[in-house]
Structure formats: C-alpha cells, structure tokens
C-alpha cells in the first residue's frame, strides 16, 4: 500500500537554513546538508527546500547547494523558490533535485507547466499554491483565493479551480499551503485540502498549521491529503518525524516507519 508521506520543509536563504534547526548533535544547524542528513536518519519521506531569497546572484549558490544535497542524501527532495522558466527547472534537475516547485511563474505563465511537464515529465513538476479563505455569502461554498509573490499579491484565481487547471496542464503534484493556518499550529485547513484533493487526481501535499499529532491524522485521512508538510514544528523538535509516524502507524494510517531498536 502506498504510504502517506511526512515532509519537513526547509527555508533556505543564501545557501543556509533560515532560523536554524534545533536538533541534538548537529554540528552546523544552518547547513542544509547537515539538516537533510538528520531528517534522512529520522526516516522523513521527502524533503522540500524553499529558496526564499531567489535573487539572480543567488541562483548559483542554490545550484551548488542542490548538488551538495544530492551527493549526500539518498532520499527524494523538491526545490522551489524563484523558478521562472524552463532553464531554471533544467538547472535544478540537472543539479540533482528530484522535483521542482513552481508558484508565481505558474500563475503568470500557465503554459510553463505544460512545457516543463512535456520536457521533464509530470512527476517532477510540483505546482505550489498559496491560498487564503475568502468571505463568501452563505449560499455559496467556501472559497479560497490564490496569492502569489510569497503571499503578498492576491490574484483572481480560485484555489480549487486553479489546482484543477494546473493538473490538467501537466502538474504532477500540488503543494497546497493555507495562508490562514500557516504558523498558527492550530491544524491544517482540512476544508481547503479536501476541496483540492477531491478536485484533482494527482497527489496533494498539505501545508500550514501543523501543531499536534492529531493534525497530521486529520489532514491525511479526513481531508484526503497524500502528504503532510511541516517546518518549524520539526525544526524546533516540538514534534519529531518518528513521533508523528509512530502515532499515525498506531492509528492505522499507511506509513513507512521502522522503529529503531
């Protein structure tokens, strides 16, 4: 049975992990490779690296970093942030990224999704969607609006509709972040996640709001997410990947986890 995935996400700035990661025994908690190795040892299923500077000069640093990660860890990882064209995607994949995550550029140039999927295969093209709940009248279903530029710029797009369109254009996966829940630790937006998950036949990664073990359970079962992503929760070891996995396994969720003796 295909396992649900638990995915730590690392924010990267100028080749370093932002905010650091408070793990036991890490020599350099700012080094993405060290952090990646620690998560590898914890049986994380995948890693996501988001480059939050993504300036032009910075691309080279990012490529070098991706090469270093690929040489040191034997698990899948996705790289996102500032990807604007097919050449950016090619550079990251050639450097060793398994998947790339496109956000703003996909909204501005939806044909980029198709072009990239045709060239490199859908399985390595992730479309990231930042969504925020909008007030709608009581008669209508709840809605979520798509934001771009790291959540600074609202668009006209409805998140569920955009996810459906991205899938049709060739995306292989949706990385769905709830801007309302992000950072709250009050749980994922299960309404949003379920709406998107029901609308597409590609995997959906839920992001934003993880704070307790039950949150992972809710989003992976009731809301139908294929994977759950968390950042600071794991970095500050409020919960560890093995804790989450052991809990989910105990609850009967399909999880890849072998308890270390």
């Amino acid at each position: 049975m295909l396992s649900k995935r638990i995915i730590p996400c690392l924010d990267i700035k100028e080749g370093r992990v932002v905010k650091g990661v408070q793990f036991l025994g890490l020599r350099d908690a700012g080094d993405p490779v060290e952090v990646a190795k620690a998560y590898d040892a914890q049986q994380a299923d995948e890693l996501v690296f988001l480059d939050i500077t993504a300036s032009y000069e910075n691309r080279k640093t990012l490529i070098e970093l991706v090469e270093r990660i690929a040489q040191n860890i034997f698990m899948p990882f996705t790289v996102g942030g500032g990807i604007s064209d097919v050449q950016d995607i090619r550079n990251l994949l050639n450097a060793g990224a398994d998947k790339v995550s496109i956000n703003t550029a996909a909204v501005k140039y939806p044909e980029l999704i198709t072009e990239a999927a045709t060239k490199f295969g859908s399985q390595c093209i992730v479309v990231a969607i930042d969504a925020k709940r909008v007030q709608t009248d009581a008669v209508r279903h709840p809605g979520w609006q798509v934001y771009i530029h790291g959540g600074r710029t609202p668009t006209e797009l409805d998140a569920v509709e955009w996810a459906r369109q991205a899938a049709q254009l060739g995306a292989g996966e949706i990385l769905l972040t709830s801007m309302d829940c992000d950072g709250t630790k009050d749980g994922y937006d299960t309404g949003l996640t379920k709406a998107v998950s029901d609308a597409v036949t590609i995997p959906v990664i839920a992001s934003g709001g993880a704070g307790k073990l039950e949150h992972f359970y809710d989003v992976l079962t009731h809301a139908g997410a294929d994977a759950a992503l968390a950042a600071s929760l794991f970095h500050y070891a409020e919960l560890t990947v093995p804790q989450v996995k052991e809990f989910l396994q105990h609850k009967g969720v399909a999880i890849r986890y072998e308890k270390k003796a």
Partner: peptide, 15 residues
C-alpha cells in the same frame, strides 16, 4: 488508470 481514486503519478513510498 486513475479510476477508483487512484492518484497518478504513483508517488511516494510503497512496499
């Protein structure tokens, strides 16, 4: 075949 709620690509860890 993406019928029966099968997500395609088959992505992730399986036995």
């Amino acid at each position: 075949d993406p019928r029966h709620n099968l997500k395609v690509p088959h992505m992730g860890w399986n036995q």
